[in-house]
């Protein structure tokens, strides 16, 4: 009798195990489903225009963005692409030295409480909502830029880049720190035993050894900057214009989509061109993340 009882219990246990396994598998697979669903919906909205009448040459090569013009609608996204590019490049010029410097400090030079406190604060920085960043750009950085550079408006590439730079720092620090932490301590010990100072160890051993991981950290920061919307919408001045200086106002691809999508008629060319922009953004971030991923795995086998 005891035997029969334990047999049913084993069967129940097995069934339970099976259900949990399936549920967890579903969670895992759902991420893939969502990604493909997003790609599908974006491209579905973009496709009729993308493959039916859009002048790709004009889209990528002309700065004339007049989607509302009654007589002559033009969809040249060059100024928007230039806007995104300029803000991102300048943001990285700010974020890379700060982010990697902070990663090196946290991983190699700080100890104990300082280290823990820094990590918590940097995580906190990552949690600031982007609309709050935009607000800071609007009310804090804007007047500072006007004062310092003596310009008419402080909502420009520099402002947006500054915000995006700060927003990308946390991810660079956390991925960069992981990359440095992954370098075996025996390398540090070997170099220090040969009389190298901490900075020499960092510069000549750790940075080359962690190169792939640090590259990934930078690229993930780039991905963050390219895709950011609200802060740049608020801080860059909203002017469709190819910038010639960091003090020019611009408009990014993301800001354009956010600002205009609500005003378009569903199914119109204007509506669809915004999805084409979205698809382009998607492609850019996809490539950046892919390269970052390959870099993390290490293209060159060790």
């Amino acid at each position: 009798m005891a035997k029969g009882w334990s047999k049913t219990r084993a069967q129940v246990e097995r069934a339970k195990e099976r259900v949990i396994e399936l549920a967890i598998a579903a969670c895992g697979i759902s991420a893939v489903v969502f990604v493909f669903a997003i790609i599908y919906f974006v491209f579905r909205e973009a496709a009729p225009l993308l493959f039916g009448g859009l002048d790709i040459g004009q889209f990528l090569g002309s700065p004339e963005w007049y989607p509302d013009s009654v007589s002559n609608k033009r969809y040249g996204a060059l100024a928007l692409i230039a806007g995104t590019l300029s803000v991102t490049v300048l943001a990285m010029a700010i974020a890379v030295p700060f982010g990697l410097g902070a990663a090196i400090y946290v991983s190699e030079f700080s100890h104990g409480r300082t280290k823990e406190a820094l990590k918590v604060v940097i995580e906190l920085l990552a949690g600031v909502p982007s609309v709050v960043w935009g607000f800071i750009g609007l009310v804090v950085i804007n007047p500072i830029i006007i004062d310092v550079f003596n310009t008419a408006v402080g909502l420009n590439v520099l402002n947006g880049a500054f915000l995006l730079g700060l927003m990308s720092v946390p991810i660079m620090v956390s991925i960069g720190e992981d990359a440095l932490k992954a370098v075996p301590d025996t390398y540090r010990e070997a170099a220090e035993a040969m009389g190298a100072t901490k900075w020499q160890v960092t510069w000549r051993v750790l940075l080359p050894a962690a190169r792939n991981g640090l590259l990934a950290a930078v690229l993930l920061g780039v991905g963050r900057a390219v895709g950011e919307t609200m802060a740049v919408l608020m801080a860059t001045g909203h002017a469709v214009h190819i910038p010639t200086s960091p003090l020019d106002s611009v408009r990014t691809m993301t800001a354009t989509i956010a600002a205009e999508l609500g005003e378009t008629a569903k199914g119109s060319d204007h509506y669809r061109i915004l999805f084409v922009l979205g698809a382009l953004l998607f492609a850019i971030t996809f490539v950046v993340n892919l390269v970052a991923d390959v870099a993390i795995r290490g293209v060159r086998k060790r």
Partner: peptide, 18 residues
């Protein structure tokens, strides 16, 4: 730095730098 120049060390696990 000078001390470690004069006193070299070889470790248990070979640890050439990468």
């Amino acid at each position: 730095v000078e001390l470690r120049r004069r006193v070299g060390m070889v470790f248990q696990r070979p640890n050439p730098l990468p």
